[in-house]
Design a protein around this nucleic acid. Structure first.
Lengths: 123, 123
DNA sequence: CAAACATATGAATATATATTCATATGTTTT
DNA sequence: AAAACATATGAATATATATTCATATGTTTG
């Protein structure tokens, strides 16, 4: 009575591939893994309320760490750690004046990305 | 010898607020906390390689879970869990034909956001 | 030079989240 | 109805990450 007909489970996918044609067309246009990875990494930089608030603050004004800390009601350390991530993602730039470090947006991509994000939220 | 002059540490920020004027100008233009939170939540949906790959796959073709699973070389379960997140973020839509569920992009915001993301990466 | 201060950072902790595994749900087919 | 199948989902585990705490670095000022 043992009932085991279709014994050939394919690979990682436990199901039958239904649309080889679609997969082949999609494959042609997929960016390299590295690009997709970098894209996800970039969005990780936006994927935190604190970092979003920091970036939004810098839309209008250049600000120092102390300003951001006071304005956002968070410790200097927390802000500084997050600014490091934003620096690594090349989303903010900075310049020092004495002991004060002023941060500003690196380019306008952030604003544009945020605007489309808001458009999606408000639709 | 106890040397404790400036004893009045302000609030969450351990430093002196330097630019009250900047903070006040920024405050005027900050979106509500809820909006900033939702924006971060939206970007969280993009902040994972698997989800980026799923979304990119759907740029060109509507695909079923099985297609995505086979194409991306991941288990059906993993794909399905991630699709749930994309559904909750209203980034993908789906329709059922028999037992097959076809997924597609909800709107064009994703493409636009990705394009600006790529622009930032490639600059 | 010492004190004050703005900022940065390593380590620890707490929390979030991606994947796996097992199984459930719902549909089709025989 | 039972088998096959596509998909969904709860629980467990492993990993990533945000914040805190303590402290380091570098600059200014008395």
């Amino acid at each position: 009575m043992a009932r085991k007909k279709k014994e050939e489970i394919p690979e990682s996918c436990s199901c039958t591939i239904i649309h080889e044609d679609r997969i082949n067309r999609v494959r042609k246009h997929m960016p390299k893994d590295e690009v997709l990875f970098n894209l996800a990494e970039l969005f990780k930089s936006f994927a935190d309320t604190t970092r979003v608030r920091i970036l939004y603050s810098l839309f209008k004004e250049e600000m120092c760490v102390c300003d951001l800390s006071a304005f956002l009601g968070m410790t200097q350390s927390a802000i500084s750690h997050q600014l490091r991530i934003l620096k690594l993602a090349r989303l903010v730039r900075f310049h020092k004046v004495g002991k004060v470090v002023y941060y500003s947006l690196e380019d306008d991509h952030v604003k544009e990305i945020f605007n489309y994000g808001l458009a999606h939220i408000n639709e």
